[in-house]
């Protein structure tokens, strides 16, 4: 038996990841944002969705203002008198929730479709992949915009629109990786046993396609969050009573030129932090998983 106590692949991966300071900091930022977004109801001074807690007298106050609630609005208030700090945390919560859910569903759907196409081959593969190519030729934002307009407002229609706009990227990646795995001997060994096609695809081919899919997933979750913010900014996302980051930015947009910068800027900064941090983590994972970049 060769050294039984050798480092597991995951430990090696972790150590290599830690060598990149920027990526570690980015991961920390993602983690912190994730935790405070999750704990938002317990750490915010105000529930921004509870209209009875809002007072129009506190509307559009600058950062540092002490409102009728008796606490400091560190980031100011918006046009409805919401505490911006609270609204941003709740907004992050929704943005992350929608981004991760849309990413997860698109991942499952796309990876299954792509791997199945690669396994089936022939006409089935050609049909599936051409449909996906066709869809990839449309900009994701256009597709999401049309779907969001057709499906209406709300969390699930929004997720459906994001999934439709994004699953094709997963399918494309899974198809490429699975095509390479398909010709490996362990798949022939599984066919020789024989194992059922479903088992070969889900138990053997897909797990071996995970590295490139994880890279795509990090990038796509960031882009789902950005896309959701864009749709909300354009008024096609969530209802006004549950503002996400995009809608907070949109709400403050009209006050920008009157000097009340904080209503738009702070949600914008939160969004940028989140997306940049996720992308930095994704970049590092991609570099580590790309065999061509290995030393």
């Amino acid at each position: 038996m060769s050294t039984p106590r050798e480092a597991t692949p995951f430990a090696v991966f972790r150590e290599e990841f830690c060598r990149n300071r920027v990526a570690v900091i980015a991961l920390g930022v993602v983690a912190i944002i994730g935790v405070i977004a999750l704990l938002a109801p317990w750490i915010t001074p105000q529930n921004p969705y509870d209209l009875s807690k809002l007072s129009l007298a506190d509307a559009r106050r600058p950062p540092g203002f002490v409102g009728s609630g008796g606490y400091v609005h560190w980031l100011g208030t918006d046009a409805q008198g919401r505490d911006l700090f609270s609204a941003i945390l709740y907004g992050l919560r929704i943005s992350i929730q929608i981004g991760v859910m849309a990413g997860a569903i698109a991942f499952t759907l796309g990876a299954t479709l792509g791997a199945f196409a690669a396994y089936a081959g022939g006409r089935v593969e050609a049909l599936i992949m051409r449909v996906i190519d066709l869809q990839l030729s449309f900009p994701a934002i256009l597709l999401a915009l049309v779907l969001a307009a057709v499906l209406g407002q709300g969390k699930w229609p929004l997720i459906a629109a994001l999934v439709t706009a994004q699953y094709a990227y997963f399918a494309r990646t899974a198809h490429g990786a699975a095509s390479a795995e398909r010709s490996k001997e362990y798949v022939e060994a599984a066919l020789s046993t024989p194992l059922s096609p479903r088992r070969v695809v889900f138990r053997h081919i897909l797990p071996n396609c995970l590295p490139p899919l994880i890279v795509v997933a990090t990038v796509q979750i960031a882009s789902a969050i950005a896309l959701e913010a864009t749709l909300s900014f354009l008024g096609l996302g969530l209802p006004v009573s549950e503002p996400s980051l995009g809608m907070l930015i949109a709400n403050g947009f009209q006050y920008m030129l009157s000097g009340r910068y904080w209503i738009s800027i702070y949600p914008g900064i939160a969004l940028i932090f989140l997306i940049v941090a996720i992308n930095l983590v994704g970049d590092q994972i991609r570099d580590q998983l790309n065999p061509r970049l290995r030393r």
Binding site: K184, E188, H204, N208
Partner: peptide, 23 residues
Amino acid sequence: GRKSTTRIQTVFQDPFASLDPRI
């Protein structure tokens, strides 16, 4: 078009490729 017997089994050339690395 699919194998319908388990009575024939195969041992492949490259044992680094014929075992699924994740199982």
